[in-house]
Design a protein around this nucleic acid. Structure first.
Lengths: 140, 140
DNA sequence: CTTCATGCAAAAAATTTGCATTTTG
DNA sequence: CAAAATGCAAATTTTTTGCATGAAG
């Protein structure tokens, strides 16, 4: 588990407490959008401004510390960057769960990329549906 | 090839010329965002309002005529709904290309969904990178 | 003709910017 | 200290809304 100070410094960003706090919130919850991050963060630091959240989300996404997860019909969520994985996105409660799977079919994707002469930078696989938790709620 | 009038009617939407025009633009280009649709559409119908574009994108997305394609760092694009496919998204020129591939590894995704008791509604696979066209431009 | 859709202008929401002040390394 | 980051308020951009008018089925 890498610490946020070194993550920031390795990307040439100063480790302000505002950034640390933003990263802690995202790290704790996994995926959060701008408003959720702001709401969470001002509980501890009421003076932390929304503009600072915006500026930092942008700079930390550009530098690669964070990754944007665009979601159909909603605002983008942000997560701490990590190796490629799959998102299970619940269309009922909005939760996002990460799944690391060994993409066997990796082959077909890789072959596609090769045959298209496409210079791949990032794979994004999102599965939308109803999570088991929400299915149980509905059933009861 | 299905025509747009019946597509709309099957979803309980009236076939106004504004909707037809929006669908034609999206169909012609494949993927367009709100502003691009508006810019294209007012060439022919200068009085068509942006509010109408918004309202229709929303209602046609909800009804399933259109599908939203959220893109990292950009505004969402919209496409005519069709069966699941892969998007090759160029981070250089912004173009999006559809690819229908036989997901062999379909198995691993399907197994994941089953083991998670996830009620799958939609698969979204987006590959980000530099398209062959942009690579050639850079090289020259 | 009745219901639904449009267009306009206004309102609301989301995001960005400029700049004086503060903090980090 | 010098460079970078913050916070505030203002500006901009994006999206939504209400309502009178017009079009579709």
């Amino acid at each position: 588990m890498m610490n946020y100070i070194s993550m920031l410094k390795e990307h040439g960003l100063k480790a302000t407490f505002q950034r640390m706090h933003i990263l802690e919130v995202i790290g704790e919850y996994g995926h959060k959008d701008i408003d959720e991050i702001y709401a969470e963060v001002i509980k501890v630091h009421p003076s932390l401004s929304l503009a600072t959240i915006y500026k930092n989300i942008i700079i930390m996404s550009q530098s690669g510390v964070l990754s944007e997860v665009p979601v159909i019909g909603k605002k983008s969520k942000y997560e701490i960057s990590k190796q490629d994985h799959i998102h299970l996105i619940c269309t009922h409660c909005g939760s996002i769960e990460d799944k690391n799977i060994f993409i066997e079919n990796k082959n077909s994707l890789d072959q596609l990329v090769i045959s298209e002469h496409f210079n791949l930078e990032k794979k994004e696989i999102n599965l939308y549906g109803v999570c088991s938790h929400c299915q149980n709620i509905k059933a009861s």
